[in-house]
Design a binder for these strands. Structure first.
Lengths: 196, 196
DNA sequence: TCATTTAATAGACTAAAGTCTCACAAGCAA
DNA sequence: TTGCTTGTGAGACTTTAGTCTATTAAATGA
């Protein structure tokens, strides 16, 4: 991306790594809100300005640290084995919830930070929110192809409602567990006729 | 609630009103994040401490001001005329979205504030989030009673998914319009058979 | 009237985010 | 080597949230 034009002192990658490690450790120990930027820089043994040289806000730094550490968080659900889309969706949601629960407070704070910073919001949405929304949308389209979901349904809307449901639970301190994964999946796939 | 035991200087209700009015005006003019507590107090012609005597945070004050001004925001949907629950839901959502769009940035900031303050989160959830969730849940139960929605469906889960969908849109800068209201309603009520 | 109680005002104080400056360090090219 | 460029370290500075204190104001009851 940003190509180095000529010389100049190279950025110290160890400083970046130390900052990410310090941020992750302090945030998990004390909670996102309790950790100051100065404390992260001090823990990493680096000047505050060095942190600001790499990230605009604490949120940018912590988001990068969290997602880097958790191996980009949740893999694309596998469609290629014998499982039905319904089962794949439920297992995928269970997997996502496990990761969400690990850094739950941090993720809430990151979503909060995205509300007060349009630049961070855009980058967060582009790099993390949208890709995951697309995973579910793709899975639902696949379900339609396989006749597991009616053609009359709206995969984009369902995807929004699924993600919305767990954002809502996340932000409102509700449970993110296997029960929720099952209830969502049931609501999406199980379609009893109108007259019971 | 808090009963006055005996004497003491009474709280000046005009100060409360002036603070709410100043907060609402400044927040709508400049955006929630740009308005400092000191500026609100100054605009209201009142000492900063007076504000802290009544509200714990800027979020508490602004939330009260916004919801007070908009007449508690969105009325319980009327079930008593000839409309189907489906139509009532769609109209209710359109109405809610209109209100949300008016103070959209402010509401995003309030949700953000709720993530960094457990006390405010609890009060926000109890007084504003849960009552609205219950409105939709009640409407869906009514729809089941009227056989407009299958008994096999899960009204609590659907309500969470509906609210989730527009929280997700709200927080991710998506459109909150009649189209969304229709798509949600369709997804909830229209249940084509599995084989198209 | 006077004591008591609670609110309001003004201002000091701390902690933190964010910006800025300046000296120094570490590369590059002529 | 010398200059150029860019990163780093240290610290000053501003703004704001939030807390605290002392003083004054407005009510009640004896």
């Amino acid at each position: 991306m940003t190509k180095k034009v000529s010389g100049g002192r190279p950025t110290d990658e160890r400083a970046s790594a130390a900052l990410k490690a310090a941020a992750l450790q302090l945030v998990r120990e004390n909670g996102y809100e309790k950790v100051s930027i100065a404390a992260i820089a001090q823990e990493a043994g680096v000047a505050r300005q060095t942190l600001y040289n790499r990230w605009n806000t604490k949120a940018d730094l912590v988001l990068e640290a969290v997602f880097e550490e958790t191996g980009n968080y949740a893999a694309q659900p596998a469609l290629e084995d014998g499982k039905s889309c319904r089962v794949v969706l439920e297992e995928f949601l269970i997997n996502v919830f496990e990761h969400l629960n690990k850094d739950r407070d941090t993720l809430c704070s990151i979503i909060a930070a995205a509300q007060k910073d349009a630049t961070f919001n855009a980058s967060f949405h582009k790099n993390f929110v949208l890709p995951r929304e697309k995973m579910i949308t793709a899975l639902l389209h696949r379900a339609q192809d396989r006749r597991e979901l009616s053609r009359g349904r709206n995969p984009e809307m369902i995807s929004t409602m699924i993600h919305g449901a767990f954002w809502y639970r996340l932000l409102n301190r509700g449970a993110l567990d296997a029960r929720l994964a099952r209830d969502i999946t049931t609501e999406v796939f199980e379609r009893p006729p109108v007259s019971p």
